[in-house]
Simulated scan of single mutants.
Amino acid sequence: MSRMTEVSSLTGRLLVATPKLADPNFDRTVVLLLDHDAKGTLGVVLNRPTPVGVGDVLEPWAELAVPPQVVFQGGPVALDSALALAVVPGAGEARAAGRDGVLGWRRVHGAIGLVDLEAPPELLAAELGSLRIFAGYAGWGPGQLERELADGAWYVVESEPGDVSAPDPERLWRAVLRRQRGELAMVATYPDDPSLN
C-alpha cells in the first residue's frame, strides 16, 4: 500500500478523541475529516454547539438548519469563517449512476458534502436532508495527524450520515463509541473525571 493511498483513506471518517487527549480544544470531540492527503488534514468538530443561532449570522440558511439551529464550533482554526455540511439523500447512488451532484453542494463522502454558502438557499432546499453550519475548522499539517494517531490521541471510526445532524450533539462522543464493536464500545463509559471514580 502506498503512502498516498494510506493518507487519503481517512477522508469521510471520524476522529474520536481518546480519553488521554489532553488538548482542551479537542476534549471528547468527534471530528469529521473533510480532506486528508499528503498536504495535511481538514475536518470539523461535530459536537460543539455554540449559543449563536444560525439566523443571527446566516439568516437565509436558518430555515434549512437542523435542530439545534445554532452555529457549531468546527475547530480552533479560522473561527471567523463559516462552512456548512449537508446530507443529500441518494447522492451516493446518483454518483454511482454517473449523474452530476447537486448544484451548490460538493460531495465529501457518501451522502455528506460541503455547501456553497454563497449559493441561494432555495437552490438546495429541495435536495437537502439536513444542514449544519460550522464556525472554524480543525487542521493538521503534513504528517501531524499521523503522529497524533501513533501517540494514541484519536480513534478512527466510520462515519454515518446522521453524525452530521445528531439531534443531541453533546452525547455524540459516547454514541459514536457505543456503536463500535469490542473494547472500543467500553470507552463510552469512561468517566468525565477519572479521579472521582
Results as ranks from 00 to 15, higher is better:
Arg3Thr: 01
Met4Glu: 15
Ser8Ile: 04
Ser9Arg: 11
Gly12Thr: 08
Val16Glu: 03
Val16Asp: 04
Ala17Phe: 09
Ala17His: 04
Ala17Asp: 07
Thr18Asp: 09
Pro19Val: 13
Pro19Trp: 09
Ala22Glu: 11
Asp23Tyr: 10
Pro24Met: 10
Phe26Tyr: 11
Asp27Ile: 11
Thr29Trp: 02
Leu32Phe: 07
Leu33Ile: 07
Leu34Ile: 14
Asp35Leu: 13
Asp37Phe: 09
Ala38Ile: 07
Ala38Asp: 15
Ala38Met: 15
Lys39Asp: 14
Lys39Trp: 04
Lys39Ser: 15
Thr41Lys: 01
Val45Gly: 03
Val45Met: 10
Pro51Trp: 14
Pro51Cys: 11
Gly53His: 12
Gly53Asn: 05
Val54Ala: 11
Val54Pro: 02
Val57Asp: 06
Leu58Tyr: 02
Pro60His: 12
Trp61Asp: 02
Ala62Gly: 14
Leu64Tyr: 02
Pro68Val: 07
Gln69Phe: 06
Val71Glu: 03
Gly75Arg: 01
Pro76Met: 09
Val77Met: 08
Ala82Glu: 05
Ala84Met: 11
Pro89Ala: 10
Gly92Val: 05
Glu93Leu: 14
Ala97Val: 02
Ala97Gly: 09
Ala97Lys: 07
Ala97Cys: 10
Arg99Lys: 12
Arg99Ala: 14
Asp100Val: 09
Val102Gln: 00
Val102Asp: 00
Arg106Val: 14
Ala111Tyr: 00
Ala111Cys: 11
Ala111Lys: 01
Asp116Gln: 04
Pro120Glu: 13
Leu123Ile: 04
Leu123Trp: 11
Leu124Gly: 03
Ala126Phe: 03
Ala126Ser: 13
Ala126Trp: 00
Glu127Lys: 08
Gly129Phe: 03
Leu131Cys: 05
Leu131Met: 11
Arg132Glu: 07
Arg132Thr: 08
Phe134Asp: 00
Ala138Val: 03
Trp140Asn: 02
Pro142Asp: 05
Leu145Tyr: 01
Leu145Met: 04
Ala150Phe: 00
Gly152Asp: 06
Ala153Lys: 02
Trp154Pro: 00
Tyr155Asn: 01
Ser159Gly: 12
Gly162Pro: 05
Gly162Asn: 08
Asp163Trp: 02
Pro167Asp: 07
Trp173Ile: 10
Trp173Leu: 04
Ala175Leu: 13
Val176Glu: 00
Val176Pro: 02
Gln180His: 10
Arg181Gly: 15
Leu184Gln: 10
Leu184Met: 15
Met186Lys: 15
Tyr190Ser: 06
Pro191Leu: 13
Asp192Arg: 12
Asn197Ile: 12
Asn197Val: 14
